[in-house]
């Protein structure tokens, strides 16, 4: 009762990185609240394969739902698992990845339980809340913090009266850290038929192609990232050229992805990838909050921008005032000259 739950996403038998990140965060929240951390794994042939991936993150109870039809994911069976388990266990918090699966499942579960859900949180904290209207005081609520309104504001959301307090978090926002490789948690093999009616298995996955990510933005130590100021898809090639010289990965802002200057999977920010490189080189990026949310933990930030007052310059260690088209060729030229 009243515990913190994390829904773990599973690709075949491998627990996704984002779920491990959330288990780490979930463990911290549970410690703060003085409750247990519970995890849910649902899939096909996962028994005996997921326990060792999940328990070391400090999971006190692992609920395994193993049956035909639970992989690949479809909405209804996984919804029934969570809804019926939550009716029984009454968690106070439920976290899931802000992935395609989490953003399909979370709203459906929250609608059924009539509990609140906050999407794409960039921070989660425990804190108190005073409802000015009702005059009620709440001691330990989950602060669900996220940029909103196109990134112009950062909102702190609470769910005072409804449980569970649900939040989704993007991959890479939290850090995965195991608690103890030999952490002793209880494993509960649940009877899927008791949770999922046969009529839930109606949507059929006919065909499925999953590829490994084409880029390595999450693990990159240097990132050259382009924004709307790059100007065109052709000029984005300058970023690739520079990145190749200095052994960096190339990323982009949402504005650049929306304008078609770069592919969507290169998008860094709240609704894209969160990165923590040693060096972040922002080319023609103004620095909207959603973008900053995805790169603010970078070590050294270098900004190339025609606008000396661009918001991104506030967090830059080095600012070059000039256009991407003018500055990048010079950076390439002088890097070649000085590094050899």
């Amino acid at each position: 009762m009243n515990n913190v739950f994390v829904y773990c996403e599973i690709e075949k038998t491998i627990v996704e990185e984002v779920s491990l990140e959330l288990l780490t965060k979930g463990r911290k929240l549970a410690d703060q609240l003085g409750v247990e951390l519970e995890a849910i794994c649902a899939g096909t042939d996962i028994k005996g394969k997921v326990e060792s991936q999940v328990l070391p993150y400090g999971v006190d109870k692992l609920h395994i739902f193993d049956a035909e039809g639970l992989f690949p994911y479809t909405s209804k069976p996984h919804t029934s698992i969570l809804v019926n388990l939550f009716k029984q266990e009454k968690p106070q918090i439920c976290l899931m990845g802000a992935t395609v699966i989490g953003r399909d499942l979370g709203p459906r579960v929250s609608s059924c339980l009539k509990s609140g859900l906050t999407a794409d949180c960039t921070a989660l904290k425990i804190g108190e809340y005073d409802d000015t209207k009702s005059g009620k005081h709440y001691d330990q609520l989950l602060y669900q913090i996220r940029p909103a309104f196109g990134g112009n504001i950062v909102a702190t959301i609470v769910n005072p009266d409804h449980r569970p307090q649900m939040a989704t978090v993007r991959s890479g926002v939290m850090k995965a850290e195991t608690k103890d490789p030999n952490y002793k948690g209880e494993v509960i093999i649940q009877d899927v038929a008791k949770f999922v009616p046969e009529t839930d298995f109606v949507v059929k996955v006919l065909d499925r192609h999953v590829e490994k990510a084409k880029n390595n933005l999450k693990g990159a130590s240097i990132i050259v990232s382009g924004g709307y100021g790059v100007g065109s898809r052709e000029d984005f090639n300058l970023l690739y050229e520079f990145a190749q010289e200095i052994h960096a990965e190339v990323g982009g802002s949402r504005a650049a992805a929306d304008a078609g200057f770069c592919d969507c999977d290169l998008q860094i920010g709240q609704t894209g990838v969160t990165v923590r490189p040693k060096v972040y080189i922002a080319c023609g990026i103004s620095g909207a909050i959603q973008h900053v949310a995805g790169m603010k933990e970078s070590g050294i930030v270098i900004s190339i921008n025609t606008d000396p007052d661009a918001p991104i310059n506030q967090l830059a260690d080095y600012v070059i005032v000039g256009s991407v088209q003018e500055v990048l060729p010079k950076l390439i030229k002088y890097y070649k000259k000085n590094s050899k």
Partner: peptide, 15 residues
């Protein structure tokens, strides 16, 4: 069920 506790206009701390 969700309430907005606070809204903040984030100002970056200048480095």
């Amino acid at each position: 069920p969700t309430k907005v506790k606070a809204v903040q206009n984030i100002v970056f701390k200048a480095k």
